[in-house]
């Protein structure tokens, strides 16, 4: 046991390991706040808006295409738009969850 510690090679090895630990600790401390730019309310609103808009649009278009090809007009459009609203809401909820977990930081 004492022979191991007396070996200069092992000693420098232990020092290196300790240094690595310190580097990792510092790096972890410094990298936490990095990668989070300030988000503006305008960008946030735009995000929610486009998520919702995309869902409704895709639902409506899919329903309309179904109408044209299956000849069940207007039920495809009606049901598609309703499902699109649901999908848009789902998108907004997901976006809100991402943003809140981002701002909470370690909770994610």
């Amino acid at each position: 046991m004492s022979g191991e510690d007396d070996n200069p090679r092992n000693q420098s090895r232990a020092e290196l390991d300790e240094l690595q630990l310190r580097i990792d600790a510092t790096r972890g401390k410094h990298q936490q706040p990095a990668g989070k730019p300030p988000s503006s309310a305008w960008a946030l609103g735009m995000r929610y808006g486009s998520e919702f808009f995309g869902g409704v649009l895709v639902g409506g278009v899919l329903g309309y295409v179904l109408d044209v090809f299956a000849g069940i007009s207007p039920f495809g459009l009606i049901i598609g738009t309703m499902l699109g609203f649901a999908a848009g809401t789902l998108n907004v909820v997901r976006a809100a969850r991402e943003i809140s977990s981002e701002s909470d930081g370690d909770k994610a």
Binding site: M46, R47, S50, E51, F53, G54, G55, L57, V58, G59, L62, L83, G84, A86, A87, G88, L90, N91, R94
Partner: peptide, 17 residues
Amino acid sequence: LIEIISFVSRPISHSVR
């Protein structure tokens, strides 16, 4: 069905934003 619509709408919201 809602999940599929949500997935298809991704490129739209991604680009429109």
